[in-house]
Design a protein around this nucleic acid. Structure first.
Ligand SMILES: [Mn+2]
Ligand SMILES: [Mn+2]
Ligand SMILES: [Zn+2]
Ligand SMILES: [Zn+2]
Lengths: 148, 148
DNA sequence: TTATTATATAGGAATTATTCTTATTTGTCA
DNA sequence: TGACAAATAAGAATAATTCCTATATAATAA
């Protein structure tokens, strides 16, 4: 998983006039350590273990700022935002039952070009495939109850 | 745009034990007439012109039911759900500024297969590419103010 | 180092989208 | 037609996100 080291993180922030605060450093670190695609609430929980007085709003705003900087990305799933520090180009499996999001890589997908008439004047920032379905854990649960 | 006629709609509902109510029929119709990828609020506004006493909750629940039936789809964008009656396989451009969602078609994308290790035990229901960026209208706005 | 100042933060309130509750109504099926 | 599970309207409740304001702090320049 490709992400920024502390130095590159500081640089990314100051390059855009954002102050380098202990909160922001810790929040990025917490996002990494949380693993997967955590919600703001989950990142908040993780940061709290390092900075017990950080506020939820600060965490939320920092995550949105990071997104603006383009150093993380965000997905909306299950009615909430999920944050993703993985800078490597990749795609996602999204379970409609438990809302778990899993990465996958596909050189084939990455090389697809947009039909030219599609993006007429549209400035592309990212392209990602989202595969919706039911994860194996959730299918397993049902097997016991319903059948299938 | 591929969608259901009244008859197919009735059939889809009763096939799954859902009652065919005037509200549901009107809500589906309103979703079609609203055009594009309306929010629940927007569909509500459209239905109201036909059934002035329908409640927001009824609209919202109907849209979720339709999604479960698989006769419409949902996208989360800009913090809210956006509903899509277009049954034809297609993909989306999503403007990060105004949250406008635009369809595009791509046989190339549709033919891409998942890397086999990706969906290990994952039951795929749909695959769609989301292209994020800035639409031409939003870029135009900025040209006046900032430059770019 | 110190003073200056634009930003950022904590804490809590407000807002917005979504979901729930309850009393009443209505499709569906026998 | 009659029984009844399911659906609806209306409004309350909840959950996620955003806003407000007083205080604190990182960055910058002297
Ligand atoms: Mn990811
Ligand atoms: Mn569409
Ligand atoms: Zn799952
Ligand atoms: Zn736009």
């Amino acid at each position: 998983m490709q992400s920024l080291d502390n130095n590159a993180l500081r640089k990314a922030m100051s390059a855009r006039g954002l102050k380098v605060t202990p909160q922001r450093m810790a929040i990025y670190g917490a996002l990494l350590s949380a693993g997967g695609h955590p919600s703001a609430e989950e990142v908040f929980g993780a940061v709290r273990r390092v900075l017990p007085n950080v506020s939820f709003d600060t965490v939320y705003r920092a995550l949105l700022s990071f997104t603006e900087l383009g150093i993380i990305s965000v997905h909306e799933a299950g009615g909430k935002k999920r944050f993703d520090p993985n800078l490597a180009g990749h795609h996602h499996l999204h379970c409609m039952r438990c809302n778990r999001i899993t990465d996958f890589h596909s050189p084939e997908l990455d090389s697809v070009k947009l039909p030219p008439q599609a993006g007429k004047g549209f400035q592309v920032l990212s392209m990602r495939m989202t595969v919706e379905g039911i994860c194996s854990a959730c299918s397993a649960k049902n097997r016991g109850r319903n059948g299938r």
